[in-house]
Design a binder for these strands. Sequence first.
DNA 1: GAGTGGTCTAGACCACTTT
DNA 2: AAGTGGTCTAGACCACTCC
Lengths: 233, 233
Amino acid sequence: MSQPLYQVVYDEIIKRIVDGRYPPGNMLPSEFDLGAELGVSQGTARKALTELEKRKIVERRQGRGTFVTLRTPENSMFHFFRLRSPEGEQVVPEPGTEKVVRRQSNKNERGALFGNPRSVFEISRTRNFRGEPLSQEVSVVPTDLFPGLPDRAPLPNTLYVLFQQAYSCVIIWAEDSLRAGVMGKELAEDLGVDASKPVLVAERKSYDLQGRVVELRTSTFITDNVSYSVRMD
Amino acid sequence: MSQPLYQVVYDEIIKRIVDGRYPPGNMLPSEFDLGAELGVSQGTARKALTELEKRKIVERRQGRGTFVTLRTPENSMFHFFRLRSPEGEQVVPEPGTEKVVRRQSNKNERGALFGNPRSVFEISRTRNFRGEPLSQEVSVVPTDLFPGLPDRAPLPNTLYVLFQQAYSCVIIWAEDSLRAGVMGKELAEDLGVDASKPVLVAERKSYDLQGRVVELRTSTFITDNVSYSVRMD
DNA sequence: GAGTGGTCTAGACCACTTT
DNA sequence: AAGTGGTCTAGACCACTCC
């Protein structure tokens, strides 16, 4: 066989999630039913489901069933927002300002984003933590994938929840590139801090279920009271 | 049963690696032999081995066998050194200066490191990339775990290879806490750059096979020509 | 050809959740 | 009690590596 059977089952389930047959939060058929339907044994269906669980595409609970993962503010924060307080706790930032504009993409954005879009939405937001300025985040997404997005302002704290629930676009992984920099004059005014302040700059590419790059994000963090936590294993 | 059988098998294999019965690079018994010896089926032995492979404790290759992972400069770099060039390639730094001293631990180190050591080695090193200063790294390890370490100077580029091969201490995961900062006067002199330069500071805790914190490391990176890459999934 | 890991099956029983 | 995922077994065959 060119492709393992469990891979075929895996792909088929992804397809059904993408096309809406298994909507977010819904229960999938049992291992036996899925196996019977697709003509494989329970063990093979199980292996596909285990793989899907590892990538957090489904959630399984003994005695209950297997469910399509529903992005919530909690799990979205936990997976994609890596700031921790000095005590090691997850930082839950307070929303600050927000601005959404439609504009032409630049060459870099056009090359990186799915569909080489000429038109993008730019979502700029600031956040605070314990009353102090914490960050600015600028997300750039293709307008094609997210029609009417500016009308939804104010946007939720966690964009990826909106992407899944309103646009059936599920971010499953992302890559950050981190550098040190200085705040800069423009941003310093926005956040009300000194322009020479050192900041942590994170450039992110976000990938969805179908492997498409659907968001480019540049985050600027003030790391006086928080740190960006990375686990390597 | 209180503990799954495959977990018992997993723990037993770890034990055998730690006590030297399965030395680094050596081949383990086959799934069948391992199962027979421990009184479980091949499938159960397999599940334990798969778990060990996921955590990179063993490597498996079809037709060859299962081997205790041997830390090499290559895989050590790949797993624990996250700097990438602008083109996205792994950065291979050039060694700079090196200094190893024995000193008393401070309260923080004593509390965090395994065995609450009063005596530690401090390994300070600088690195360059493409001829430019890149980083300073200061590692702190208990003297008890690494006797005679200063005599081994110059140390290899990748400490973790030495830890495994000379001290049977296998680092399997680590956690970095990242912040932005400024270089500072002292370090600026060492590296020959401006003291006000923004830098990326990474504080690391490294854990070995037995779950012990065996190293605290503070790295200071100049991110003019590199970025610290993080994959979230 | 012998030995290894990789895939797949069929069936059993356990642990947990819901009705 | 019924239905789910979790563990475990025994056995088959395939794909790959090495001798």
